[in-house]
């Protein structure tokens, strides 16, 4: 088996003296969807922040076989990583189209820059309808789509999604997850952080459950779906032995 696209070993993130992520090891094989689950405050967002380079982390982190230590966020973007953050972080006073064009900032000279934009319009027709609208005036679901499209504009090998369903109504969540499933066909690998465990496991090939900053459970998504310990981790039901 070839080396995984992303590989982390013993990853730790600390805020001052407090560890948000403790000794996490995980891997994302090429072309797969990996889900990170766990209750609020488990360290999921910090983990993605560390992988993207937004947060300082200790431990070994490799992307396409190359060590990531010392590489800045924008260099990791150039390497082929892209993060859709929990807060979306859109350029709210700029148009939808400008947001997308800036998503491809690193590839601004390349020949297929325009093609990528066209592809995004195909993938997210809603956004094309609103291309001239300011990003700040979009609805929650549209914002999430714009954030995803913006992240894809850099043609990443690895797309990281932080809570794409956060604050969205169930119908829109379904839409978002359909899009994520469709993305798999384009060959991009996906690392998905989700609180919505059922939907995430429906989609993913592999899952990790985080609690208090550490991985407490991992396995193929098909197994985790049936594992009552996942539910226990969320609702604190003690009837199931740990």
């Amino acid at each position: 088996m070839s080396a995984p696209l992303l590989w982390a070993d013993g990853l730790c993130v600390a805020y001052g003296r407090v560890d948000a992520v403790r000794d996490v090891s995980l891997s994302v094989p090429e072309g797969s969807i990996v889900a990170i689950l766990g209750p609020n405050g488990a360290g999921k967002t910090s983990l993605l922040g560390a992988i993207m380079g937004v947060l300082r982390a200790r431990g070994d982190l490799r992307f396409r076989g190359q060590a990531l230590a010392g590489r800045a966020v924008e260099q990791r973007v150039a390497d082929g990583m892209s993060l859709v953050p929990e807060k979306r972080e859109l350029f709210v006073t700029m148009s939808v189209e400008d947001n997308l064009r800036l998503g491809g900032f690193r590839r601004r000279g390349s020949a297929d820059y325009g093609d990528t934009l066209e592809e995004m319009w195909r993938l997210f027709p809603r956004l094309k309808e609103r291309r001239a609208q300011l990003a700040g005036t979009l609805s929650g679901g549209e914002r999430q789509m714009l954030a995803m499209a913006r992240a894809l504009m850099s043609r990443p090998r690895l797309l990281m999604l932080d809570e794409p369903s956060l604050g969205l109504a169930p119908l829109i969540v379904k839409d978002i997850f359909r899009t994520v499933a469709a993305l798999r066909q384009t060959g991009v690998s996906i690392l998905l952080v989700e609180q919505n465990a059922r939907a995430a496991l429906e989609l993913a090939d592999h899952g990790y459950v985080l609690e208090n900053g550490s991985v407490v459970l991992q396995g193929p998504a098909s197994e985790l779906r049936e594992d009552e310990r996942v539910i226990a981790a969320y609702l604190g039901i003690k009837t199931v032995a740990r």
């Binding site: 993207m52 937004v54 800045a72 966020v73 924008e74 973007v77 150039a78 892209s82 993060l83 953050p85 807060k87 972080e89 859109l90 350029f91 709210v92 006073t93 700029m94 800036l102 998503g103 491809g104 900032f105 690193r106 913006r150 992240a151 504009m153 850099s154």
Partner: peptide, 13 residues
């Protein structure tokens, strides 16, 4: 200017 984090995430250093 609008969003420093967002800018870094799209690769604007």
């Amino acid at each position: 200017a609008v969003n420093r984090v967002g800018a870094r995430l799209v690769g604007i250093s």
